[in-house]
């Protein structure tokens, strides 16, 4: 089961999907494009403490986190 984690005021909202299910993957890809199109940054977890920023949907990623656009504080 893969997970898309969207950071929000509640901590996060999680969307789980089965990578073997074509319809679920298509839905996850739609979500990915909608979020990144809205300014969210996507990062995939690549192991203990390591991550990678991704600009394209990766159907093999087990865990992708999305955070809102960054700005100077």
């Amino acid at each position: 089961m893969a997970t898309q984690i969207v950071m929000d005021a509640t901590g996060d909202t999680r969307h789980h999907f089965n990578p073997a299910n074509a319809a679920a993957v298509a839905e996850a890809e739609r979500r990915f494009k909608a979020l990144t199109g809205a300014g969210f940054t996507a990062a995939v977890r690549r192991g203990e403490g390591r991550s990678e920023l991704v600009r394209e949907f990766d159907p093999t990623a087990e865990e992708t986190v999305f955070f809102p656009r960054l700005q100077g504080g």
Partner: peptide
């Protein structure tokens, strides 16, 4: 720097970590 929307502190720290490391 940090996310433009309100997030709990842990989320802010994670976004900062990912941004600096990548």
């Amino acid at each position: 720097f940090g996310p433009e929307r309100y997030l709990p502190t842990g989320d802010i720290l994670l976004a900062q970590k990912i941004a600096l490391e990548n």
